[in-house]
Structures are given as structure tokens and as C-alpha cells.
């Protein structure tokens, strides 16, 4: 199905600004960075998590543990039509027991990815709590899940697509709302 650009939601400058704000909110809500860890969900949650961790470090002058989560093993659509997802490594090089975990992803949509991520994290240990930060919340939740930090709320229709590009993966920073071509 071909898609075409409907509207640009973010560019490099606004994305950076948004991430700075989220970093500040995380520090504020958690009253500092004691026991704070950042975990990015593959694929685009990972560079976003790295950037947020870096910004927090710049603000607070302490290093923040940062991990990578691949939720493929926890997906609920393994036998659905379509090629199965490639499993990549989960790399969380620290224990998460009693930690304040902030999960980072690019787009919050149905909530199923976050459900898988929560299960996955809980299998890794018992954190003090888990918070969620996303760059875009486009609505249409299928599970009772909400984000603690939202870069931008974007009302969408189901046949639209939110395309997030990050420099580390795609060579540029942008968020574009795409719509189906007639």
C-alpha cells in the first residue's frame, strides 16, 4: 500500500527540544536520578534512550545506566500472517531489582509492544517501578496502557502511519504523518 506525506510533525530541532523537555520531566518527577535506569526498546527506542540518558547526564552530572530491550520473544503475534520478526539481542548490563526503570519507545499506538516490554522486564527482575516515555502518542490503544512522558500527542486515523526517523538509524531526525494514497 503506497503512502504519501501528509504533514511533518517534527524536525531535528523540535525533536531535540522535545527530548530535552522529557529529560527534565524525568528528573523532576523522580526527584533526581537516584536508582534511575533507562531502557530503550528496539529499534528506534534505543537511540532515543541514548539521547535522553545523555541529556540527563549533562544536567545531573552523573552517569545513567542504559539498556537495550528486544521484545520479539514476548510478542503475541508470532504465528500471525507475515514474516516472523528477527530476534535481536537484549542487552541490559545491570540488575534491575529495585531500580526506577524508564522505558523509551518512539511511538505509542496499540500498547502491545509496551505490554511485551513490561513482561520482558518483569522476567528480568523486580524493579521499584516502571515508567514509560514516548516521542509520539498517536492513540488507538488496545490495552490499558498510558505513557508517563509524551513528546507529542498526535490524533491519527487508523489508516495513517507515523514515520519516525532518527539520525543513528535513518540518517536524519524527523517525524512525519503519512496517509494512504487514494
Amino acid at each position: 500500500m503506497p503512502f504519501r506525506k501528509k504533514v511533518q510533525l517534527m524536525d531535528a530541532v523540535t525533536m531535540d527540544r522535545t527530548l530535552i523537555r522529557i529529560a527534565h520531566e524525568i528528573i523532576e518527577r523522580n526527584k533526581g536520578v537516584q536508582d534511575l535506569v533507562i531502557i530503550g526498546i528496539r529499534t528506534r527506542g534505543v537511540p532515543l534512550a541514548r539521547r535522553i540518558a545523555k541529556k540527563i547526564e549533562e544536567i545531573e552530572k552523573v552517569s545513567i545506566p542504559m539498556g537495550i530491550l528486544d521484545i520479539t520473544m514476548y510478542r503475541d503475534d508470532l504465528t500471525a500472517v507475515g514474516p516472523q520478526p528477527i530476534v535481536r539481542q537484549t542487552n541490559i548490563p545491570f540488575r534491575i531489582n529495585d531500580k526506577k526503570v524508564v522505558l523509551i519507545d518512539d511511538v505509542l499506538f496499540t500498547g502491545r509492544t509496551i505490554r511485551a516490554a513490561l513482561d520482558s522486564i518483569i522476567d528480568l527482575g523486580r524493579p521499584k517501578f516502571i515508567q514509560l516515555a514516548v516521542l509520539i502518542d498517536r492513540g488507538h490503544r488496545e490495552l490499558p496502557i498510558r505513557a508517563d512522558y509524551v513528546g507529542k500527542n498526535v490524533p491519527t486515523s487508523l489508516d495513517e502511519v507515523v514515520e519516525v526517523s532518527v539520525a543513528e538509524e535513518d540518517g536524519k531526525d524527523s517525524v512525519i504523518l503519512m496517509e494512504e494514497e487514494e
Partner: peptide, 17 residues
């Protein structure tokens, strides 16, 4: 390579299958 990591966890189990 990805699955090898599971065997190093405390809870050596994922719900995949």
C-alpha cells in the same frame, strides 16, 4: 545469539512458544 542471552538470566524463560 539473541537466545543465548536468555540462558544467562535469573528467570531463564521467555513466553515465545
Amino acid at each position: 545469539k539473541a537466545f543465548k542471552e536468555v540462558s544467562t538470566r535469573d528467570i531463564k524463560k521467555v513466553p515465545t512458544l
